[in-house]
Design a protein around this nucleic acid. Structure first.
Lengths: 198, 198, 198, 198
DNA sequence: AATGAATGAGTCTTCATTCAT
DNA sequence: GATGAATGAAGACTCATTCAT
């Protein structure tokens, strides 16, 4: 997940992610990060300028990773419908395989702790752009109802986020079948053609 | 929003909500709450046992308020479809009229800072139960596809949460018309009948 | 020396002065001030906004005290010569009776740690103004050579500061007689009349 | 100023002097010295055993330089009066040409950071000894009042130090003429003959 | 009930110094 | 000789909480 970083940075970022997820930001102290990562406090400051910096670098690294993970899957198909399916399956897969990174982004994408600059960089490197482009195409082709692509993407993403939350809270077992149905529900929500009984 | 509380409690809870929304939990100190609310630190501890207690009471109060707000609207109609519409419109209305409470719940419903006990109380007093009941009825009546009501409610709620997030970030202007279309998309996602061209 | 302050402030300022004089600023930590003064670190910050603030308040308090000490002595006589004598004797007396305050001012009056604002307030409340006024009068009466009063006062002050430094380093025993001769030397330096053999 | 040192030592000492003068000792960190001097921290420790060592070497080097600067001028004349004049003019010249070294000595000659050993070496290599010798001679020749030479030298030095401080603070423009008058004032302070109207 | 001074453990961060390369 | 990454103790400051008034 942090392949681009050197050993120390990787250790710090991984540890920070772990700590934040199960203890929360306010309980994630620098000394704890130091102890758990095996990097001395002084040396952490050799690689990151502040605690805020760590969080922001963590944010950017995860968003970048997520973006690549999702768009990679998305381009392996041709038809709009198939790309739709693969893209959202990737999102679900991401949430299942990397639950910590997923939750971190969910919890902190609206936090004042993350700089606007980081959010901007995140958006450009993320998967939202390509996904909106896909929806735009679907609308143009008359497959989707003529709604704002940004709005549709957000709503579908929200659906899956909450699906994953239920899954992570053990309120729901997320089988292959269920995933397909969830994605089909999203498709039906905005497609002109009827999908359930087809 | 905090009508059941006395003057001091109300001042503290309102102030805390304001502070947490625009400064985050870690930057919301007791002394700041004291200064902004006009209640001395000592006296705050007369009404709340700890900072954690304030956050939990805040959480429970908001969930209770939200639950009443949404279920109130939901019961003013008969047909499943109409109750569906009114319920989700209430949720959107809630997010627009009380954005701070809404964001607070979003941010902290998965936080370790909120006790399981608070979450449990919240669930019982919230609107999720009645909503799931409505979906169960729709499935039984053959209006909805036979999916897990809890899953459907979560997904639809997630859709609207992200719709509201876009709205709060000024990425989207949330007109009456748009709200109706969003709710119709939710309906179509799981209804057996086709809705867009009907 | 810190009569205008409350108990806590007085304890902190006195302790800080003691520590700075025999350990230097950089070795005078807040925790040491706390321990030695018997005031907890937290409470120190209730009365002073920062370490810098303590130093500046200390500076201002001492300058004020010194100013009053010197000008008080100065006004108990009439003739220019007598006021000259009494004023500089007060300065020497001050250096002898309050060596710590004296050294502190010497060491820190040119430090970037002391704000310009503090220096300005210090100058207005100090004894330099009245002293320069005395010299101006002496020049006007034809008693002193027509040199810049500010320059003369600074030079004489410097003389006595170094005299006191020698004294404090035990290089010199500062008897009554020696003090008188030092002051007479200052007088002779700028008086038109010859003083030594008169 | 640091001609006796090798390149690395010179760079470190010059940088340290610059930093201490405009930032103070406590704000002059080893890493800052390393960055500004272009010498790595590790290598600094190859030439100096500690930070304290740097400061003490700096002190000794400057005192040595100052001593040579002043005594050089002093020996270019014969009469007591002329040597007196030339010596103190050298002191003033030193303060004007090398303000940083001058201020450094002023600020740190009484600091616990400078070892007694350094001060002792400084005294032996400085200009105070020769100057006191000159005064002793003047007393013996009946030119000066019979006061302790050490005391007189200290007082006159103090006068000029404060004159230079005023100059460095732009409170006073130090012209050639003013310098002469300052030195004459010192002479008059202790000479048996009257000087101003002669 | 109400105040806010007092506490001290804990926070983030810096810095002199060491050491593997 | 030279580098700069690494260390961890110590620094200034904060903050949840208590308690005398």
């Amino acid at each position: 997940m942090f392949e681009r970083c050197n050993k120390v940075q990787k250790a710090v970022l991984e540890t920070t992610l772990d700590l934040i997820i199960d203890r929360e930001l306010q309980a994630t102290s620098m000394s704890l990060i130091a102890k758990d990562s095996g990097v001395s406090t002084g040396n952490i400051y050799h690689y990151f300028s502040s605690k805020e910096d760590i969080i922001n670098e963590l944010y950017k690294a995860i968003v970048k990773f997520n973006g690549e993970f999702v768009t990679k899957g998305m381009n392996q198909a041709d038809s709009v419908h198939e790309r739709f399916r693969l893209a959202w399956r990737s999102v679900i897969e991401l949430g299942k395989q990397y639950p910590k990174g997923f939750r971190f982004i969910e919890q902190y994408s609206f936090s004042p702790y993350i700089h606007e600059q980081s959010k901007l960089e995140a958006y450009k490197g993320g998967w939202c752009g390509p996904m909106e482009e896909l929806y735009r195409q679907a609308v143009e082709e008359g497959v989707f109802v003529p709604l704002d692509p940004h709005m549709m993407v957000q709503m579908h993403y929200g659906s899956l986020v909450y699906l994953l939350k239920s899954h992570q809270q053990n309120m729901l077992e997320l089988t292959d079948d269920l995933e397909e149905q969830a994605i089909r529900a999203c498709w039906n929500a905005v497609s002109k053609e009827k999908g359930w009984n087809g």
